[in-house]
Amino acid sequence: MKDIHASDIDIQKFAFDQQECQPEVIKHILSCEECNERVQSYLALSSFIKDQAEPTLDYNLSHLVLGQLPSTKEAETSYPYLINFIMLAIVSCLALVLFLFRGTIGYLLSSTQAYQNYFIISIIAFISTALVLDQFRAFYQKVNLLTP
């Protein structure tokens, strides 16, 4: 082993994975100037790679990426909550009206004329609610677009 120099793989193992090196190889490298020089050259190469400058960007990567992500759900989550709240308020109002005027409603329903009126009022209420919700949706879409 004294006269035969360590192979390149053994030199690299000694430099970077010494636990994988055979004891006789370690013994040879420690006593051989030439092999030692090769080990030092690999270590110098490694430290040069480590000292290389990190790539620098001439743009803001975070802004670029975040700009392409859907806007934060904080606004989005409050939006369905508000819709639900409005829906609940409308349903509650309707329920209250039905409860308070149950006698009148019963009377109205008993005549054909009143039933037709009720039907028309229901349709108007439904369309109005849909229009309000649609306006609300459009408003939030615009707000989201304008938010940077």
Binding site: E54, P55, S62, L69, S71, T72, K73, E74, E76, T77
Partner: peptide, 24 residues
């Protein structure tokens, strides 16, 4: 995942070196 996409900026800042190192 709860919806705060702004937090993703931290993920970018934490991993940017590795990602750029591979890409470059």
């Amino acid at each position: 995942l709860e919806g705060d996409t702004r937090i993703f900026e931290i993920v970018i800042s934490k991993t940017q070196h590795l990602v750029l190192s591979i890409v470059y």
